[in-house]
Design a protein around this nucleic acid. Structure first.
Lengths: 164, 164
DNA sequence: CTCCGGTAGTTAGGTTGCCTAACGATTAGG
DNA sequence: CCTAATCGTTAGGCAACCTAACTACCGGAG
């Protein structure tokens, strides 16, 4: 029914991203986590189990420190995160999930896995594998591309260490 | 250099979408079109050469009529679009690109094609083909999926007629 | 030790990109 | 011709970011 003349890549990325985000958010709600908004999920996607500095969270999520601080503030008020001073650096604070936060975190990770599995079974594991692979290759091309950084206006961020 | 432990699909979609949008926007600026913002590009992506109704524009771009109206207002003020009464329906107006708008439109379409070609040559035509294919399949699954509409909260929109 | 440039985080204030609710104008159907 | 639905607009609001400017702390050079 739906051979609707190939959509351009921008539309495809956009629609699939929106669908993914809504799906993930819905799963969190179904899991009883109702006091967060969609934007908070990206904090969960960037934070390490044992704590992460605010600037790192911001860099990993492609946003500015103040923007990330606001999200963290809210998650702190609702009891998902806490801030502790970094023992190695008095300026820095480690943003760390609380017990409640760790529960939400594992729920989120599991939900993402579920979704990916669902996608794989929907379009075939092989095709899904290729999709991830191509997206990753494209992304790395952007990151390492010397020609035209594409995000010259957004240069600052170059995520340093991934989560462990 | 960059074997950084596979990113989850949400990150991949998000980063690639951002990169694409920035790239497209940059190309428009390079082509001398400097009086529009990124959000306006999606109007160009939804409009038909000979005019489209506001509600259709909104539906195709997944937004509400007032939101789309604002974008159209701005593009009208800057001379890219005009509103004419729909001859077939006195309530409706056709949003139609002006001469200036048609120039911008073709520039945008060309830019998208360029970007897609660049992507294809970056990761290989075959892989790129598979990427588009998988994204489209995934998207259609969401659209036609009876199980869990994923966007129940955003139901209204069901793009009727695609552009010609 | 002390000064000093750089980095971590926060505060204050602004902009963009949407949304909902309510309304007037127009059309279509019984 | 009256009513219900639809097209567009107005008014008002809010989330999710941003930039600029500040304080607090680090780490190295003199």
């Amino acid at each position: 029914m739906n051979t609707r003349a190939r959509l351009p890549i921008g539309q495809l990325l956009g629609r699939n991203l929106r669908a993914f985000r809504e799906d993930l958010y819905r799963r969190q709600r179904d899991a009883g986590i109702t006091d967060i908004r969609e934007a908070h999920l990206q904090v969960f996607g960037a934070i390490d189990w044992r704590g992460t500095r605010l600037t790192d969270l911001a860099a990993r999520s492609n946003m500015t420190p103040p923007a990330m601080a606001e999200l963290v503030d809210q998650l702190q008020e609702t009891g998902y995160l806490e801030r502790v001073v970094d023992p190695n650096d008095g300026r820095a604070k480690l943003v760390r999930p609380t017990r409640k936060g760790r529960r939400a975190l594992t729920a989120a990770l599991r939900a993402v896995e579920d979704i990916e599995r669902e996608y794989a079974s929907a379009i075939g594991a092989e095709r899904f594998e290729g999709l991830i692979d191509a997206l990753q290759a494209l992304h790395e091309r952007h990151a390492t591309d010397g020609r035209a950084p594409a995000s010259a206006c957004r240069s600052r961020r170059t995520a340093s260490s991934r989560r462990d």
